[in-house]
Design a binder for these strands. Structure first.
Length: 308
DNA sequence: GGTAGACCTGGACGC
DNA sequence: GCGTCCAGGTCTACC
């Protein structure tokens, strides 16, 4: 007999909209069930892996159903995971502040960006999204969880740190990213990545960004992407998809360098919210082309970041 | 500081 | 079915 638990959410949260705000919802062990409109995931908890289905039946509340009984401590872990993934700790005032700077998203209510249930998972997903088509990222993460994770969950830092590069390369097909991912996991096991420091509002953005760029596999794009995943939205993660958006949707012209420069100028007025302004503009273009994100099926063909 | 080339995979394409 | 080419961001060597 599984456990059912209710999770308090901000009144302005819409699960279909806010879960489908970033492509990581489509990376194992997470999944959006478009038919049942629920968020599915696998978490590795104290007593082993558990499959979860999370739905929203009423305003201000989510309901999670686990496939086995959960201890009190495990229930807290589920709540913490959902809080992180759906950014439930971003208040309505936080979102209103974004809408005050960029009113284009006030009607739709967009403001929250989906992320992973842990910092390590966000970092691995970011590294596996670099220098590869989105379909490759999806495949890598599927294999990563299937090969290394208990019950299909995301592996622990310890498990990843103890994995041989050859295993990652041959069975998870991560290519040259093998040693970078293992080194990253080792930094976690040695306590050299301090999430509290990175999320502390007192820590300057530039210090966090500089630290991220020292991590294996993290260049300017990956570090900027991690900034938004840490709730610091004042950095633009410029990749080939951003340039494509500039050309195709915004009609920018010139060399790639000139387009990047125009993109930076375009989003500069949004200050500490610029990533969200950029991202929701990009996401809106995807939804215009493919329909609402919460109706996308896993097989819907999409370009790389259209699923990000 | 800027630039070129290697890294690795999956997919598209031509034969 | 096979071989070739290409996209994608980071890293390192070199100027």
């Amino acid at each position: 007999m599984g456990t059912r638990l209710s999770i308090a959410a901000p009144d302005d949260l819409s699960l279909p909209r806010d879960a489908n705000s970033y492509g990581y919802i489509r990376l194992a062990p997470d999944r959006w069930d478009a038919d049942r409109q629920c968020l599915c995931s696998v978490l590795d908890l104290d007593n082993g892996p558990v499959r979860l289905e999370v739905a929203q039946q009423e305003r201000g509340q989510l309901r999670a159903v686990a496939d086995r009984a959960l201890s009190r401590s495990e229930q807290s872990s589920v709540r913490a995971a959902m809080t992180r993934m759906l950014r439930l700790d971003e208040t309505e005032d936080d979102i209103a502040a974004f809408h005050a700077i960029d009113p284009r998203w006030k009607t739709s209510g967009r403001g929250r960006l989906f992320r992973s249930s842990s910092l390590l998972m966000d970092m691995v997903r970011t590294v596996t999204s670099c220098n590869i088509a989105w379909s490759g990222t999806v495949l890598m993460n599927e294999r990563f969880c299937a090969v290394l994770g208990r019950g299909g969950a995301f592996p622990s830092a310890l498990r990843l740190a103890r994995t041989r590069p050859g295993t990652l390369r041959s069975r998870c097909r991560v290519g040259y990213r093998d040693t970078r991912l293992i080194e990253l996991a080792k930094l976690f096991t040695r306590g050299e990545i301090d999430e509290a420091w990175m999320t502390d509002p007192v820590t300057p953005d530039d210090a966090v960004f500089a630290f991220l760029k020292t991590l294996p596999g993290f260049g300017p794009y990956a570090a900027a992407n991690m900034m938004q995943l840490l709730g610091r939205y004042g950095f633009l993660a410029i990749d080939s998809e951003a340039v494509r958006h500039g050309k195709q949707t915004l009609g920018l012209t010139g060399s790639e360098r000139e387009i990047v420069s125009q993109l930076r100028a375009r989003y500069e007025p949004f200050g500490t919210h610029k990533f969200r302004s950029y991202w929701f503009e990009l996401w809106e273009a995807y939804e215009k082309a493919h329909g609402p994100g919460h109706l996308w099926k896993p097989a819907t063909p999409r370009a790389k970041a259209s699923a990000r």
